[in-house]
Design a binder for these strands. Sequence first.
DNA 1: GTAGGGTTAG
Length: 660
Amino acid sequence: MATGTSLAVPVPVAERRFFFLSSQHGHERKHRRKRSKVFSSSSSEAIASDHNHQIQVLCKQGNLALALQLLPHEPNPTQRTFHSLILASNTPSSASAIHRAVIHSPFHSDPFLSTCLIAMYSRLRLLSQARQVFHNTPSKTIFVWNAMLKALLADDEAEDALSLFCQMNCLGVHLDSYTFSFALKSCIACSADSSSAPYRLKQIHSAAIRRGYDSQVHVATTLLDCYSKLGFLSYAQQVFHHMSLRTLVTWTAMIGCYARNEQPYDALNLFRQMVLTQDPHLTPNAVTIISVLLACAGLAALGQGKILHGYILRRELDSVLSVNNALVSMYIKSGSTVLGHRVFDHLDPRRRDAVSWNSLISGYAMHGFYQEAIQVFDEMVQSGVSPTAVSFVSVLGACSHCGLVEEGKMIFQSMTHKYNVVPCIEHYACMVDLLGRAGQLDEAVKIIEEMPLEPSPQLWGSLLGACRKFGNVEYAELACSHLFELEPKNSGNYVLLADVYTKAQMPEEVDRVKKLLEEQSLPKLAGCSWIEVFKKVYSFVSVDEMNPQIEEIDALLVELVAAMKIHGYEPNTKVILYDLEQEEKERMLLRHSEKLALAFGLINGKKGEVIRITKNLRLCEDCHSFTKLVSKFTKRDIFVRDVNRFHHFKDGVCSCMDYW
DNA sequence: GTAGGGTTAG
């Protein structure tokens, strides 16, 4: 206790030191202090260390201007000083000033500073300077190589990044896990204009396996995401299942993978599985929520989406702009433009970005509110947000569905002339669709012939669709000559061509195409529909004997068909290409997944509530006319979202006006 | 010894 009191007496710091240090130490200290005093007055080194420190502090405080003014007065800037300056540099002129100073210092080829300089130039989007630093660094550490890879990737020079990766391999550079992350991402960045992406991805994957980096969590997650982006869902799944350690990012990437690759149901299941682990490290973040919202949108699962919205508010994730944008898009895609618009309205107008606006524009376009879509586009421009390539895809799509040919042409022209957006393949596809739907087939073909890009299957598909509508055999054959080569496994193209021949009364040709289709025994994409009833999502496929209520559903459908026939419904068996008896064809029509979902909704849903169905294919003509009549007969509003757009059935009429 | 990576809405 006695010592305690004595220690409680405040002792000045300097004295206390004396108290504890031996006299010898004290002497040494004094001596050293004396020496440094001599240096500080006579040698420049002491001033130097002083300036170095000052420059570093100024950089940390963000006062780069003053730091740069001080730099010439420092004859021996240290590596630390340069590092601080590089980190603080935020303009091209300050960047080159610092770079010059480095070159004239003993650190001119220091790999550490080279790494930082490359990153700095990359940040300022000065790629050629970054390349220069790279080439002038004789002994490149893996950091230097990786910084250059990253810089190339960030500047859309992914092809160069991949060549650099090859060079590293040839030179026997010891690659690390970062190298693989960048190489994999480059591969994806190249995939837009190169068909070899899957092959190259697998090559890099095997190289990663050989070096044992494939199990590294960052590499594996990137790998998973790369397979996802190329549409190789099963490879992504394999990577996910083989990982021994999965982080939140890994789970999020896999959820996003399902959501983007037409498996929204699996995305929701995986999300549920993740939440059930109750692992605190796996608490969903904004990105996770965005991916889950994407899945809800994919299913038009409005109830699930609302639950998520509640979660977002509780977790205060509504402060994140991208979460709000995803909400807007989820609500609209789930059929509620009102709720979508409400989220948009609650956003501070100054915070709204191009994605916020685009969500709204594409939402209106999807619902067939084309005037509104164009109006929102104008509002976007007025608000000072520049339209992006995506804005134009939506708004041109809107024009096309509305038959606004002249308006569409003007907007297409304005892209380059007014908004500085270079048209890409999707925009040309929109134009072909616009002209094709309006019956201007010659002009549509002219666009294809004159465009500077390689026509995509979607673009030929648009032309083929127009040919079907206007019965143009010549252009249909032209489109198919490309389509059969570009996507030989898409049975839809054969069906459309057969339709064109049927319309043109060319039965031999119809038979030829049908045979072609049968010979290849192509796997037809199974029709699938979803419906949400009391916040649970139910899915239906056309051959679904597993559904416990199938008998009840069948019975209702038979009853409905009988009633609809009185109201003028005639089963449109033309949509079935197989050679079957009329009765059998009608039976097949009744098993279309959309009709099953509709009957299920009528049986189990809340009376009088809007029925919302989502379908993975385009709505067939028979289901369309059937649903129109059901909406009238049952006095129910029915929303059906197919792959392209919304159909709102009410009182026997559809919002698409039978034009889809 | 320092530096650097994976998931994000249209």
